[in-house]
């Protein structure tokens, strides 16, 4: 039975709306509070520390040093270069692999995904040392290559940028694969069939339809890997052998040995700004990708 609401039923309705409104506001409060306390405050604190000199007075010296000292510029450059190379390796290895995995039937897919995710449960430290065992001068790889007579003298595989990027790629690849595979798996198979039915080869379909539609996932993976790589510590420290100086190592060093919070904080703030810049750029890129074709 449907009837018009009686006049007095409006009051409870209004009340209901009000309580809904209030509850809604209260509902987001814990989340806001958590973000505020655990994310925003520490960031602000970091910024505050970065503008204090050793005596605790306001000063720009920590930032001045970042500009004056060539080593900081180089360390930032190296960090970005290593991160970029890691991203590149993830793209080169990850995209073909993800494309293959995404098309697997459910059972095989589950198995492969478990294998992909498994390394995430092993420690970074263990994996870095495992690479060291493989790559060092008397390591597995050099020993084999020498035994097979492929090389005369051991190759310098460990303690350089190559080893660092290799180790980081090993760690980052699953993280790249997750959003990439997820995007690829959600590509409608009929679109690929449609493309082929119109006469496109498998490769053409892959390039013109499959990849463009997976782009959001690939982009997400790329950004994730890049931003996480910027903050890497353990892997470059172990596999770089001091030849790959990255930002986080510099931060840790200033902190542990000298308790120089100001200097470390300033590096941290600059890194944070860099990360935000990268995220902003990616957001812009994504917006262009999704909405840029409207006006033409």
């Amino acid at each position: 039975m449907v009837s018009l609401p009686a006049p007095d039923s409006r009051a409870p309705l209004a009340l209901h709306r009000l309580t809904g409104f209030v509850l809604g506001r209260i509902g987001v409060m814990p989340a806001l509070l958590t973000v505020g306390v655990f994310v925003l405050l520490p960031c602000l604190w970091l910024v505050w520390l970065s503008v204090l000199d050793r005596s605790g007075a306001l000063s720009g010296e920590n930032y001045a040093r970042l500009i004056e000292q060539a080593s900081y510029r180089r360390i930032f450059l190296i960090t970005f270069r290593v991160s970029f190379e890691t991203v590149l390796c993830c793209l080169v290895l990850g995209i073909p692999f993800a494309s293959y995995v995404a098309k697997l039937p459910p059972r095989a897919f589950g198995l492969v995904m478990a294998a992909v995710l498994f390394p995430l449960w092993t420690s970074l430290l263990v994996r870095a040392y495992a690479w060291l065992v493989i790559l060092q001068r008397n390591g597995l790889l050099n020993t084999w290559l020498q035994d097979w007579g492929l090389i005369d003298a051991p190759l310098p595989l460990a303690f350089n940028e190559f080893a660092t990027v290799l180790g980081m790629t090993h760690i980052m690849l699953p993280i790249f694969l997750l959003p990439t595979i997820s995007a690829m798996r959600s590509v409608d198979g009929n679109l690929l069939k449609a493309s082929e039915s119109m006469g496109a080869s498998g490769l053409r379909t892959y390039l013109s339809v499959f990849l463009p539609l997976s782009l959001s996932g690939i982009l997400a993976g790329t950004i994730l890997v890049f931003v996480m790589s910027l903050g890497f510590y353990v892997t470059p420290a172990i596999l770089g052998g001091g030849n790959v100086q990255v930002i986080s190592m510099r931060i840790a060093r200033s902190l542990s040995t000298y308790s120089n919070f100001g200097a470390s904080s300033a590096i941290g703030v600059v890194l944070l700004i860099c990360v935000f810049a990268v995220l902003g750029l990616s957001l812009l890129l994504r917006r262009r990708l999704s909405g840029g074709k409207e006006t033409k």
Binding site: R65, Q69, A70, S71, R74, I75, I78, G242, Q245, R250
Partner: peptide
């Protein structure tokens, strides 16, 4: 230390 890190990263 600054000088040393400059030298190392050069």
């Amino acid at each position: 230390r600054e000088l040393y890190e400059n030298m190392m990263t050069e």
